[in-house]
């Protein structure tokens, strides 16, 4: 098959949308945090915790949606930890974020080993199955790509719509955006910046965890160490690339995933002339490149990473 023909096959776009799904959840999660003024570097660890929590719930006998809920709760708990340290206490968001990633990751591995001391290869679960939407999934290429996915992928797209609607059409969203731009204006309205930011970090972290759970409960059917593999950091780049806007970030995530799916296929076609590691590097290199490209016109939320103390300016 020709390298360009790949781009017009349905199976390629089905894979791209599947690869995009966890990124969409986690990117929306990070976007909410940053829109409220908090950089959440706990993302990589929170996704690991979510991947484990969702999978383990199902393995222990829960149903799939319970697994998603447990993952979200686990994420929210780490979000609460992150938010407590960075919002009311105003600690360095860089250091706390890395700390939360280290803690969430190591705690996950600890619990995994504790719960499954004897296993050599992790047990499998029955993951979410594709749920083709009648009619729409028959539309060539685009319909197949978008409408023959698992329910969690549909939830990812729904999440983008909800996040966009809440951020731009509701008073809560206005308060979140203002908390990231001009927190004293929020306080002047009688709204607590602390509450808004903590809430945003908890909700955002829950979404990151669901993104992680997508990997163990929809893309694959088991939990492996280091399976997040930098996806969290890539999502942080996607938020910048998407100019902190849900729609643009969604397009960024899909473009990124399409590129990722494409490099896998190119890798198979190259027949081993180019080392496979070069292809595997591409997603990370692409993220750095994307950051450089948008850096000049990036308009960060003005209060991003600036702790807010009541009564101070």
């Amino acid at each position: 098959m020709d390298a360009l023909e790949i781009l017009f096959t349905a199976s390629f776009w089905v894979a791209a949308i599947r690869i995009a799904s966890p990124l969409i959840f986690a990117t929306m999660g990070e976007l909410i945090c940053e829109r409220a003024g908090v950089l959440n570097l706990g993302i990589e660890g929170i996704m690991t915790a979510g991947a484990f929590a969702g999978w383990f719930t199902v393995y222990a006998g829960g149903d799939l949606w319970t697994g998603v809920l447990v993952a979200a709760l686990a994420g929210a708990m780490f979000g609460l930890l992150h938010a407590t340290l960075t919002v009311p206490l105003g600690l360095s968001q860089h250091v706390v974020g890395i700390g939360v990633t280290l803690l969430a990751t190591s705690l996950t591995y600890f619990i995994y080993r504790l719960a499954l001391p004897e296993v050599t290869s992790p047990p499998k679960i029955e993951p979410f199955q594709p749920l083709p939407i009648p009619g729409l999934s028959k539309v060539p290429v685009l319909g197949e790509a978008l409408f023959s996915q698992t329910p969690l992928t549909y939830l990812a797209f729904l999440t983008v719509a909800v996040v966009a609607w809440v951020l731009y059409r509701t008073p809560v969203g206005l308060a979140v955006r203002a908390a990231g731009e001009n927190p004293s204006a929020v306080e002047a309205q009688g709204i607590s910046v602390t509450a808004i930011r903590m809430g945003a970090v908890m909700v955002g972290s829950a979404l990151m965890a669901v993104g992680g759970a997508f990997l163990t409960m929809s893309a694959f059917n088991s939990f492996f160490f280091e399976m997040i593999n930098g996806r969290g950091w890539i999502c942080i780049a996607l938020v910048v690339f998407g100019s902190w806007r849900p729609g643009k970030a969604l397009i960024g995530a899909i473009l990124f995933a399409a590129f990722d799916a494409y490099q896998v296929r190119l890798q198979q076609m190259s027949g081993g002339i180019v080392p496979y590691q070069v292809f595997l590097m591409m997603p990370y290199a692409l993220s750095i490149l994307a950051l450089i490209l948008v850096a000049r016109r990036a308009t960060y939320p003005k209060a991003l990473m600036i702790p807010y103390q009541k009564g101070e300016r």
């Binding site: 930098g230 910048v240 590691q277 990370y284 993220s287 750095i288 850096a295």
Partner: peptide
């Protein structure tokens, strides 16, 4: 990249960890 373009070095240094490890893997094979 931080001083010239304002690119956050946290993300770039983190991503480079993955790139360099793959580079090492490539060299070792």
């Amino acid at each position: 990249l931080k001083t010239r373009f304002g690119v956050d070095e946290v993300v770039t240094t983190l991503l480079l960890n993955f790139i360099v490890l793959l580079f090492v893997s490539m060299l070792l094979e």
